[in-house]
């Protein structure tokens, strides 16, 4: 095992976790006002009607797939009566569909961002950087799926190497050697994924943390007390306030 392996499969994961957690906390603490989807539907509605649901449903399925594949040990699914082969077919099938939807969705979204004048104008540098990392992670993910599935070359059971490594990080008992022996495509995808998580808290992707599930449980009409500020004004904020004009 080389120093590079330690760096990539021990140091980088912990760095990712640290930045992801503290970054999100910091952003929430100091930039609640910037915490939004920054929807562009006001500018364009026809393309987004297809692109956004396609992408989001795809990516949510992909997230679900990762949870299944990485967090649930192979032993559990076998114990539940699911053979490795059956699991593999299911995972590759669903994964490919979800991945394809995500890729199609994200391509349409980017096409829309690029070609629609008002939407393009509303695209920040931050958005562009985010899309680079996001698309890289998605494309490399699809490549790994194709390679790992055995469609090209031999199939590869990542649940014997990548998944235990992933869990070992969270069990605070990192096993970089497992990752070191996996396929290069998995390695590149894992690094791309970690980089995406490192920038995540600083992009519009934070909106995913606000998925409004509590909406299902609250009363329709919300009342609030006026709060303790002086009448006639709200309390002054910390620091400078930007006026967007």
């Amino acid at each position: 095992m080389s120093a590079q392996d330690i760096l990539l499969w021990v140091a980088l994961p912990y760095l990712t976790i640290a930045v992801f957690i503290t970054g999100t906390f910091w952003r929430y603490r100091y930039d609640k006002f910037g915490w939004t989807t920054r929807s562009s539907q006001l500018h364009e509605r026809k393309l987004i009607r297809i692109a956004s649901p396609l992408f989001h449903l795809g990516i949510l399925a992909v997230v679900g797939g990762h949870v299944m594949g990485l967090l649930i040990p192979e032993g559990w699914t076998s114990a539940a009566g699911l053979s490795e082969d059956a699991y593999h077919v299911m995972a590759v099938g669903l994964g490919a569909v979800a991945g394809a939807c995500t890729l199609a969705g994200v391509s349409l979204l980017i096409y829309r961002r690029r070609t629609n004048g008002p939407v393009f104008n509303a695209t920040t540098k931050n958005d562009k950087t985010m899309y680079v990392f996001l698309v890289a992670a998605i494309c490399l993910g699809l490549v790994t799926t194709i390679i790992g599935s055995g469609v090209i070359g031999d199939g590869y059971n990542y649940r014997e190497t990548v998944s235990p490594w992933f869990r070992s990080i969270f069990l605070l008992d990192p096993k970089p050697e497992l990752m070191a022996e996996s396929l290069p495509s998995f390695k590149v995808h894992a690094v791309a994924g970690m980089l995406l998580f490192i920038i995540w808290p600083f992009t519009r992707l934070v909106h995913a943390f606000s998925a409004p599930v509590l909406y299902l449980f609250r009363p329709y009409v919300v009342y609030r007390e006026r709060g303790p500020h002086d009448p006639g004004s709200r309390a002054p904020r910390r620091g400078w306030e930007k006026v967007g004009s």
């Binding site: 606000s210 909406y215 009409v221 009342y223």
Partner: peptide, 8 residues
């Protein structure tokens, strides 16, 4: 999100 409200 419950961000809108009616002041009591």
């Amino acid at each position: 999100s419950g961000a809108m409200y009616k002041r009591a």
